Simulated scan of single mutants.
Amino acid sequence: MQQRIINFILRTSEIGNKILTELMYSTDEIANDVGTILVGEEAVKYKLINEVGGFSTALKKLNDIIESKKSL
């Protein structure tokens, strides 16, 4: 199951396998038994997501993508 999740993350983001593995097994913070918690701009920095925004930003982006596909 874990490998399926890792494969999904690698397939749908731009993070590299090595960096993802390092983040998953990092235990340097007291709050983390295993793994790293990334919030907002940290997730962008590691290329897990493209940008930070709210629901309206995501909905606008989705509509833009749909419109661009229609014109192909």
Results as ranks from 00 to 15, higher is better:
G35F: 07
I5G: 02
K47S: 12
G53V: 10
I37W: 09
K47D: 06
N17I: 03
N32G: 11
M1E: 07
E42Y: 11
K70L: 07
T21A: 12
A31F: 08
Y46M: 08
V34L: 14
L10Y: 06
L10W: 05
L38W: 03
I6K: 00
A43G: 10
L72M: 09
Y46D: 03
D33T: 12
F55V: 15
Q2C: 08
I5T: 10
A31N: 07
T36L: 05
E22Y: 07
I30R: 10
A43W: 00
N17D: 07
I65E: 01
I65C: 03
K45A: 15
V44D: 05
N63Q: 10
V34S: 08
I5D: 03
F8I: 03
A43I: 05
D33S: 11
I15Q: 00
T36G: 05
K18A: 15
S71Y: 01
I49W: 02
G40R: 08
K60I: 01
S26L: 14
I15S: 00
L38T: 02
D64H: 04
I9W: 01
T27I: 09
F8V: 03
E22M: 14
Y25M: 13
D28R: 10
I65K: 01
Y25F: 15
L72R: 06
T27K: 09
I5W: 01
S26K: 14
R11W: 06
Q2Y: 06
A31I: 11
S56L: 15
G53W: 06
L48P: 01
I37E: 07
N17Q: 14
E51L: 12
R11H: 14
N17G: 06
L20P: 00
I37R: 13
D33K: 13
S71G: 05
T12W: 02
K18Y: 12
T36K: 05
D28A: 11
T27V: 10
N50K: 13
I49Y: 02
K18I: 15
T21F: 09
I19H: 05
I37K: 12
K61G: 00
I30D: 08
T57H: 10
V52D: 08
N17W: 02
T21S: 12
Y46K: 08
L20E: 01
F55A: 15
V39H: 06
V39N: 06
G53P: 04
Q2F: 10
I6N: 01
I19F: 06
T21G: 06
I19N: 07
E42K: 15
T21H: 12
I65L: 03
V39P: 03
A58N: 10
I9Q: 01
K45W: 09
T36Q: 04
G35D: 07
L20A: 04
D33N: 09
F55R: 13
K18P: 04
S26M: 13
V52I: 15
G53N: 09
L10M: 12
N63E: 08
S56V: 15
S56I: 13
N17V: 03
E22T: 11
E14V: 10
E22I: 12
N32C: 14
I65D: 00
G54R: 06
G35V: 09
K61N: 03
T36D: 04
K18D: 14
N17R: 12
